[in-house]
Amino acid sequence: MQAQTPVEAASARVRRFTPAQRWVHRATATLMAVCVLTAGCLYLPFLAELVGRRALMATVHEWSGLLLPAPLLLGLASRALRADVTRLNRYGPHDRRWLRSALRRGSDRPAGKFNAGQKLYAAWLAGAVLVMAGTGLLMWFTHLAPLLWRTGATFVHDWLALALIVVIAGHVWRAYGDPEARRGMRTGTVDAAWARREHPLWEPEEEPERRVG
């Protein structure tokens, strides 16, 4: 095999996400953004006065919340997405090392395709969405449960929504600080050097793509 030139080596890219995976991420992010924005219009007086049409905001909020799991469920038809879901649910000794190093702000952070922080974020988000959907249904269909249950559901829903906003803001902030990670989600490929540095235990299933220029 012919040796790569320095320019070719620097330009090597590897496939990280398929179109189906990126579609699921974008659709879920869009629905989550709609949920957060409409919730703001329902709970914050200055936004409620600015937007008005409270009934419409409530309807959009309810349906966008119910549809949140839909992109993932539809995306499970993709073998690549199913493989990533499996990766996100598997933890190994390297994940414990990653978490210890992250807590100590160290540089020894071994990771496969997803690091331990991303796995915890995905698990927490999935659980939070299910709880939000359940409590939201109790608040929406008032005949489903007695008043005491609905009061508890409202309390959990409101405080978990606040926690979701904080956690999602942290996710966005971390993504903003890593342009290559964002490029991977936008285009599907990442720089090979970045992959080796940030995810040294990850072995892409596909052959690297070579780009020059």
Rank of each mutant, 00 (worst) to 15 (best):
R150N: 05
R54H: 13
T5C: 03
A116Q: 02
R82H: 06
P110C: 04
A9T: 09
K119F: 03
L120R: 06
A55E: 15
W124S: 15
A163K: 09
R186K: 13
W149Q: 07
M139I: 12
M139D: 08
Y176Q: 14
F17M: 09
G106C: 11
L201Y: 09
W173E: 06
T151I: 11
Q2A: 13
D158K: 10
A70Q: 04
A163F: 15
G52L: 13
A123E: 06
F46T: 06
T154R: 12
W159T: 07
A20M: 13
V36G: 01
T28F: 08
Y121S: 14
A55K: 09
A102L: 00
Y121D: 10
V190R: 05
G184W: 01
A116P: 00
Y121I: 08
L81E: 00
T28D: 06
A145I: 04
L164S: 01
R197I: 03
A192Y: 02
A9P: 00
A9Q: 15
P110Q: 01
R79E: 09
A133L: 15
K119H: 06
P204A: 10
R53M: 13
L73Y: 03
L42D: 00
V129D: 01
R15T: 07
T38A: 08
V166H: 03
R197L: 11
L147A: 15
R109W: 05
T154Q: 12
Q4V: 10
V131E: 04
E180P: 01
A39C: 10
L47I: 10
D95R: 10
Q118T: 12
R16W: 11
C35M: 14
W202F: 14
T142A: 14
H94S: 15
L73H: 02
L72E: 00
L37R: 03
A55L: 12
V129E: 03
H143C: 01
H157D: 03
A9I: 09
L130R: 02
P45W: 01
P179S: 10
T38W: 01
G134W: 06
L72G: 03
L56P: 00
L73P: 00
L137I: 07
L47W: 12
L67S: 04
L148F: 14
A175S: 12
C41D: 05
A128C: 12
P110F: 02
T189A: 14
Q21T: 03
G117Y: 02
A80H: 13
L120V: 12
L120K: 06
T142C: 03
V131R: 06
L68E: 00
R109M: 08
V34D: 02
V24Y: 06
H157G: 06
E209T: 14
A193F: 08
Q2V: 13
G134H: 04
H171S: 09
W23M: 10
V34G: 05
A12P: 00
D158L: 14
Q4F: 15
V156F: 07
R104C: 05
V212N: 03
V51G: 01
A77K: 11
H143T: 08
